[in-house]
């Protein structure tokens, strides 16, 4: 038992030492681009019409992989719901007033930050997945403090609409341009909010889907399973 602990400490310290050493050698950022990275840096703005490389790769160059990714998240959510189901209990416990009022002030701000991140997903860092996690954490705080039962039906509806919308936009690309998830809308000006064709629309749909799925996961983890 003691030996295991000491070994774990040694591993942690060794790992941090390696990372600290590699930081000390001052790896220059942005240099020694590989061929693929160079291609993205040179051609992303021209080909997709958006300045954010990460979003361009996630939604445009590797859009099909992202569809698979949100499907994996859907399956995980279904697994959690299947293992820990919950129905509406009628008893509602009031939280402490400090928590209650604190969250009444903080909740809209967190929600606003999440919506900002998802709407500017093609311009600034972040996007559907990050915003989904932020919005889900806002709803988690809401559930913890107010102890009211969120209408999970609404989240399930939003989730299915967003997922279907993503797939339908992909299919529409087949008819408009001959490829799944083809960017068939006009690209607009670089750095404009309304630019990039289908990329912002798809990322907003991903944001809706991820946020509702994570909210359902958290609420089932919180209240699901056997009655205590």
């Amino acid at each position: 038992m003691r030996l295991k602990h000491i070994l774990a400490w040694v591993f942690v310290i060794l790992f941090v030492g390696v990372v600290a050493y590699s930081l000390q050698t001052e790896v220059p950022f942005g240099h020694d681009l590989t061929k693929l990275a160079k291609y993205y840096v040179d051609n992303t703005a021209k080909e997709t019409g958006i300045p954010n490389f990460v979003t361009a790769i996630v939604v445009s160059y590797r859009g099909f992989d992202t569809l698979g990714e949100v499907t994996v998240l859907l399956l995980a959510t279904l697994g959690v719901i299947g293992i820990l189901p919950w129905e509406k209990h009628e008893k509602v416990k009031k939280a402490h007033p400090v928590l209650l009022w604190g969250i009444r002030i903080v909740f809209p701000i967190i929600l606003l930050v999440g919506v900002y991140i998802v709407i500017h997903g093609h311009l600034t860092p972040g996007g559907g997945f990050q915003a989904g996690a932020v919005i889900a954490s806002a709803f988690m705080l809401y559930m913890v403090s107010l102890s009211t039962h969120l209408d999970l039906e609404a989240f399930a509806f939003t989730e299915s609409i967003a997922g279907t919308g993503f797939a339908l936009i992909g299919v529409a690309g087949i008819f408009a341009g001959g490829a799944f998830l083809y960017n068939f809308l006009p690209k607009g000006n670089l750095f404009d909010l309304f630019s990039g064709g289908i990329i912002p629309i798809v990322y907003i749909l991903i944001g809706l889907k991820v946020s509702s799925e994570l909210t359902e996961v958290v609420s089932h983890m919180m209240k699901g399973g056997a009655e205590q």
Binding site: G126, G127, A133, M140, L214, M221
Partner: peptide, 22 residues
């Protein structure tokens, strides 16, 4: 910054909350 956002929201808020519920 993308990874930082995801880590802060998922690692520090959501997974911590799930562990706390457990």
């Amino acid at each position: 910054p993308d990874v930082a956002m995801a880590e802060a929201a998922i690692g520090a808020a959501l997974s911590l909350a799930i562990i706390l519920f457990a």
